[in-house]
Amino acid sequence: MKNKNIKVCIIRVGGTSCDVETARAFQELGAQTEIKHVNELVKQDSLLDYNLLVFPGGSSFGDHIRSGVVFARTLYAKLGKQIEQFIAENRPILGISNGFQTLIEYGLLPGFEGIGQQQPQAVLTTNNPQGFKCQWVYLKNENKGNCLFTNQIPQDKILKIPIAHSEGCFLFPPGKEKSLLQKLVDNDMLVLRYCNENGAFANQTYPANPNGAYHDIAGICNKEGTIFGLMPHPERAMYWWQEPDWTTKTHTTPYGDGKLIFENILNNIILTQKQ
């Protein structure tokens, strides 16, 4: 199997807005990529035609009630059975920014109790300090190899990828923080953490940690490593010319760090198909 045989579906609803850039990133790497409205997928009954699902960034349904919750409940109501089968077959799902909020609100991440769970076990809430933050951040890959989206990225590699959100502060329910963090670590579900440019963790201090996220958490995966959500936007760090220093720095590669994540999952889909 080659990248050109991989079918990626980016699910769109009213208010999603990063679908085109995300499609461009996968197309750059040769994958067949379609942007489908959730209602088209319901009509076609075709979710299982795809190798990879993506919930893109934006403000789905105007962020009504809570960011991501209406998208999550719409998916559950309209495509829940197909999504359940998709996950049971260990097919990967990526959620970027609002897509990550959607995965959390759906209960698919962290998903400690599996896919049947309907209540979220964490939240991506108001940034601390408050306000919409649109800036470049540094991230460290903390995963030890479980996550299918990062397992080929060296652990000491510092990634530079931008964020754009006002509700990206990852928190667990009060009083359960330590025990649930331990579960993340024990199951190798912790993936990306905010750090400074030298790789030192942010320790919940701004601006290295731009939103006050607990334990500097920027991205997590499920126990199986097949579902991955992150607040930063890798599709906005796909090419060198998207980087803020593109006019002053000499670039040795035409790509940015976001490419590593897209490339990583496509490589793993090929490997899985060969087995």
Binding site: I65, Q119, P120, Q121, A122, V123, T125, L171, P173
Partner: peptide
Amino acid sequence: SERLFANPAK
């Protein structure tokens, strides 16, 4: 409330 309006984490 549990399925839609409130997130028990916050």
